[in-house]
Design a protein around this nucleic acid. Structure first.
Length: 201
DNA sequence: CGCATTTGACCCGCGC
DNA sequence: GCGCGGGTCAAATGCG
């Protein structure tokens, strides 16, 4: 089962983006009301400044995906496979400061809203948790921050539960993987398998 | 023992 | 200028 979304505009052009939620136990009988949906979309839009969004709903799973292109992100940035942040993630505050002062551009981000009991969706990549924050005004504990374990890859994701509907998990991906999902494992067979992939051409 | 997670501290941007 | 909140670091801890 594969759901597919396209995301492009005059400045940026993402390749067809494919999302497969095969490993997530979705409840196909539950749906959000349109109002909930649009409210959430609105929230995310305001939060991330999305200029475009799309939604996608598969036949046997309830999830929506938002694609976001902030106005600041140029096709140059998207096309250059993230040269500008090759020093992201290196240790030491000094470098951190340099990075931050330099960092005017945001990575392309995608948000997924999934109805799932598990926080960690198996998207085929390996993630290492590097932080957690308590979200204000929430009874639900926190927002978790993950980085792709591939050391050449700086893709990050953020996972949090919806305040008004704890069944929903919001996963925000930031950046684009520069490798295949299975690269950090024994990759050989995985490429042709049904391992879901995000942002991977 | 090596790697992943936890968690408190820290930095920085932003709004007031 | 100050305080708050989001995001990240890194030491401590846990786990296989």
């Amino acid at each position: 089962m594969l759901s597919q979304g396209f995301f492009e505009d005059e400045e940026t052009c993402f390749s067809p983006f494919r999302a497969s939620m095969i490993s997530v136990p979705f409840d196909s009988n539950q749906t959000l009301s349109p109002s909930q949906h649009s409210k959430q979309e609105e929230d995310l839009t305001s939060q991330f400044g999305a200029s475009h969004s799309f939604t996608s709903q598969s036949s046997n799973a309830n999830y929506w995906a938002w694609g976001e292109v902030s106005g600041i992100i140029s096709n140059k940035i998207l096309g250059m496979t993230r040269d500008h942040d090759h020093h992201l993630g290196v240790s030491g505050m000094n470098k951190m400061k340099k990075l931050k002062s330099r960092r005017k551009v945001r990575e392309p981000r995608f948000c997924f809203k999934t109805m799932s009991d598990v926080d960690i969706l198996d998207d085929g990549y390996k993630w290492r948790k590097y932080g957690q924050k308590v979200v204000k005004n929430t009874q639900h504990p926190s927002r978790s921050y993950y980085r792709c374990t591939q050391d050449t890859c700086r893709v990050k994701k953020r996972v949090e539960r919806l305040v008004d509907d704890p069944r929903m998990v919001i996963t925000t991906y930031e950046g684009r993987h520069a490798h295949s999902p299975s690269q950090n494992e024994d990759d050989s067979e995985a490429n042709s398998s049904n391992v879901p992939n995000f942002f991977w051409l």
